[in-house]
Design a protein around this nucleic acid. Sequence first.
DNA 1: CGTTGACTTGAGTCTATTCAAATCCTGTGG
DNA 2: CCACAGGATTTGAATAGACTCAAGTCAACG
Lengths: 251, 251
Amino acid sequence: MADILKFDEQRNSAPDEKFELLHKHSLFAAMPDDMYPRFTSAAKTLTLKKGAQLFLQDDPAEWFYFIVSGWIKLFRETVDGDEAVLDVLTKGHIFGESAIFDGGVHVAGAAVAENAILLSFPTSLLKGAITKNHDVALGMLASISRTRRQQSQDIEKLSLQNTSQRIACFLLRMCRANDAQNVSLSLPYDKSLIAARLSMKSETFSRALNKLQRETSISIKGSTVIIPDTNELAVFTCSHCSQEFPCGDLH
Amino acid sequence: MADILKFDEQRNSAPDEKFELLHKHSLFAAMPDDMYPRFTSAAKTLTLKKGAQLFLQDDPAEWFYFIVSGWIKLFRETVDGDEAVLDVLTKGHIFGESAIFDGGVHVAGAAVAENAILLSFPTSLLKGAITKNHDVALGMLASISRTRRQQSQDIEKLSLQNTSQRIACFLLRMCRANDAQNVSLSLPYDKSLIAARLSMKSETFSRALNKLQRETSISIKGSTVIIPDTNELAVFTCSHCSQEFPCGDLH
DNA sequence: CGTTGACTTGAGTCTATTCAAATCCTGTGG
DNA sequence: CCACAGGATTTGAATAGACTCAAGTCAACG
């Protein structure tokens, strides 16, 4: 499987480049100088095509991953085949690491949503590092806390917001870094995956997006989104949220 | 406020009794012998009536709490007044502690769902303990991981299960400790709060419960639930979940 | 015994879903 | 560079599930 799903790396980033991003992550930033190299030297670089499966829920966790580029979806599948998308992550994030505290098995599956370059590390190495080193444990706490905060957000939204409001919030989060005016951006992954990430069917997503275009001045063509005024979206969704716009970063 | 909302403690548990439960929690169990007493001597016992508010979202977190008895709801309130119930906790659980990693403010409000006895501790004490002691940090990791796992569950359920299925799952979890046959139990808190915990309106909860009674052999009178055969409920809900019955403990 | 709040029931509405069909887009081979 | 297959997305129509608002019932408590 792995062979078929690899793709040719376009611009081969120098080793240093990958690890620079890595070192900014709270988990790796916390490592002492003699420990960090053990991770970088144990790291394997994976170059994966859209659709590749990293692991499934309940798989024993031998590896955890750092995303250098691309998008990874975390999901759970029910007995009768439905899929819930828990999160879709991109560069700078790690995943699969929490299995250490979940009995050594993954509590969600992971698959490549958009061609990705990953670094993989043995979970045993991280487990040892957390056990031995206090600062790494603190880095892990910071990292897990971030995802817990994000999940609280998600639960709130699923409970209280309708489909267009969830989409509006998704779009707002995508243009957080930009100006408030005339934001132009490109949807990072398939619309059907955005729909699943927001817990709705893709037909519903399509219709709700139309509704947003009718009721605000945003326009979408293909994967290009133009948002003349983010405040307009904020009015639409943010009063149905516990946090006022602009809300803090979650990732 | 605190005065009005206090209630007379029925059977005054001996100090040892409260702390025995406390010591079983992964966070406190991890403490070295010279640290634990600092927590128990700083602990204040709170005896609170249903309805009392402990703190609100965005409040600076001065205290965190351990539940000796009763039920506590954690919630978030939107700008326009809607409420999402993130969790409802009972004895043996802590809450408010994660503010340490959330910028020192609570990311959810907390209120008493059923008359409760709590122990409160200064967050500064915990923050110091986690910073200084490696084992406490590991205990905290275990504790946060548990809630993260629970939240993943919740998101999955909100995404994929309908109202009756969520209720059936809730009931199954309540009789996990018992036998599979002829379980009789009492709902632990108001039906309207169960409804909110499961992200539905109380009218919907009432109707969905009726539906469950029509379609399985369970019966509910007031807050008393009789479940002749848990497998019947499992058939109803568990194929719409990523975990087979009997699923593991989350708390 | 009446009041209050919790819960249930009824009727109508709206949101999101399903299933089916049409349309658009993209990567591929010629 | 273009045509085409296959997948992704959109649209339509009908349905189902959950919600709102209003009214009724029940039970605990003073």
